[in-house]
Design a protein around this nucleic acid. Sequence first.
DNA 1: TTTGAATATGCAATCGATTGTTGAAATTTA
DNA 2: TAAATTTCAACAATCGATTGCATATTCAAA
Lengths: 344, 344
Amino acid sequence: MKAKKRVTIYDIAKKLNVTPSSVSRALNNSSYVNETTKKLILKTAEEMNYKRNTLASNLRRGQSKTIGVVVPRINQNFFANVIAGIEEITYKKGYNIIICQSGESYEKEVQSVNTLINQHVDCIVISISVDTEDYKHLQNVIDHQIQLIQFDRVAEELETLKVINDNEQASFEAVSHMISQGYRRIALLEGPQTLNIFRQRKNGYLQALAKHQMPVIDELIAQNAWTKELGATATRQLLSLSNPPDAIFASTSDFSALGVLEVANSMNFKVPQELGICGYSNENFSEITSPSITTIDQFSVYMGKTIANLFFQESENLQVETIPKVISIKPKLIARSSTEKNQQ
Amino acid sequence: MKAKKRVTIYDIAKKLNVTPSSVSRALNNSSYVNETTKKLILKTAEEMNYKRNTLASNLRRGQSKTIGVVVPRINQNFFANVIAGIEEITYKKGYNIIICQSGESYEKEVQSVNTLINQHVDCIVISISVDTEDYKHLQNVIDHQIQLIQFDRVAEELETLKVINDNEQASFEAVSHMISQGYRRIALLEGPQTLNIFRQRKNGYLQALAKHQMPVIDELIAQNAWTKELGATATRQLLSLSNPPDAIFASTSDFSALGVLEVANSMNFKVPQELGICGYSNENFSEITSPSITTIDQFSVYMGKTIANLFFQESENLQVETIPKVISIKPKLIARSSTEKNQQ
DNA sequence: TTTGAATATGCAATCGATTGTTGAAATTTA
DNA sequence: TAAATTTCAACAATCGATTGCATATTCAAA
């Protein structure tokens, strides 16, 4: 049994003794077909189990109705949520999304972007990897007239559409909250400063300290503590200082905050009385640790929807050139037990 | 400034005064081109920033080098991990994946599958939604000669490639473990029985009871308790019984197990002494609740890799018809504090 | 009956890349 | 040097759907 060929508009045309043009017009609901023949064609197409070849259609039309998404990892809550949000909107408009993971590698990011350009996607949505330090591949996207939307981790100098969180503000609020709770030696676990989001979060931390006339103590700033393990290691060092911090802001993620909590427990620091903890991202587990962890919600699903809507707005709005636009979503501080020093 | 057209092989051909055929051959590294011209063409293509139009290429070649994936939700740990696993393998082979979410709706699942057929994907990987009760759309995939791989939640009667967990065995082991820990009245939170995985987990539960000559008590089996909220509600009822259970197996997910834990705490049942709890899926939070929750790891990323590898094996193996094949992955029981009755 | 408009359909080019066939030039062999 | 062979490139068809233009048909108005 050899592979049957798929049914094409030619097959339908032949069967009904009309031209492929008419079949195509009928399927696209064009007005230039007789109502009767249109119905007949649609009925026959249905019967013959015809499926349009989107490849051919897109080639002819010069668009693909596809959006490419590049993220470091899809099995990371934040990114999975953003993608879910994007998909929810694009689906309704009949668009598909192609997903690529950069795995935090520059090489793979470039390759992913190239694949998407080859695929003639109508838009590329990207959150860059830690490794990414030059943006030729992104410039390339623009040069190919493909809409580029950066989100969360963005290359600031590139003038593209951006959907971001106001990290600095959120971070500022988190640290201010800790100060108002009575914490006085607040340590910072910072992420790789190549990523703008981590720079912004550090800024927010510094500004909150400044606003409250508190000194910046270098030994309380731990670099590159952006996983649970690295967070734990950094915490071990911090808590071993002769004058240890009374609070730790794990600005990178709730995972590192979790590392902090575990080390604090094992070293017998009482949370939140002797050590306040604040994380970032509102991972689902942060609510159920004991004590529950204060964190920052980024409205990730909403962010995804915003990205998709932005794309559709821009593509309907037929300006010759896109005006670089930045949509900033204000994250929300979620105060929980891990910073309730006052109440104790 | 009007949109520049993209560079095509014709542009390259014209510039170098050769034919498009030669350009194509050079780009595909065919042997029917002179080594010198090949190098020249490749160099020029590079300079002109040429990107192959995959649409045209695929149309001509009759394949798309694309795999479609349909899952209920992508921002659910298990599915996100499976997808990550698939992507890891397909990426290396130069394949793309297109993701669709069914959102547990039959309608949307059918539409997603149709879109993927239209896209001429080479393979469709699917885990069906709760709502799905007929399989015409899947049969349709087969009729279109598209490789179909079902995973996790599968339509058993359809003869396709399948990658599944041995749910029954895992469930059997989990309940046996609880029995060996000394629990005697073990309740079951079951999921919608339309899904095979939930039927299998129930079977495992029943078999474990049977093996240990324990009676099946109807009032200890709670139907449709497959979210955190539903799990909590069911638990409230179970613990209010005149003769409440001394353990609850939340066979649907760790989320419902979490619901159980919270209700147990609020109703002052001591876990694990007075109430044992076992979940399913090994969500990352199950390790850090207090007490930590016993659960079952499904090796989700590995499952994704298995799926992708299976596809490539089958497509290389040029048999005329695929032999329905089922790969079963044995999940692993992870015993934690929530079932440590013995040790207390 | 003729003219004009409206409607419906056919024809053929096009999107960009691939590939089987053919023929010319270059190289090897006799 | 002639014949045989190899190497390389051109030509043209093809994948399936879309669409501008041309033509045919129908019907109504003049």
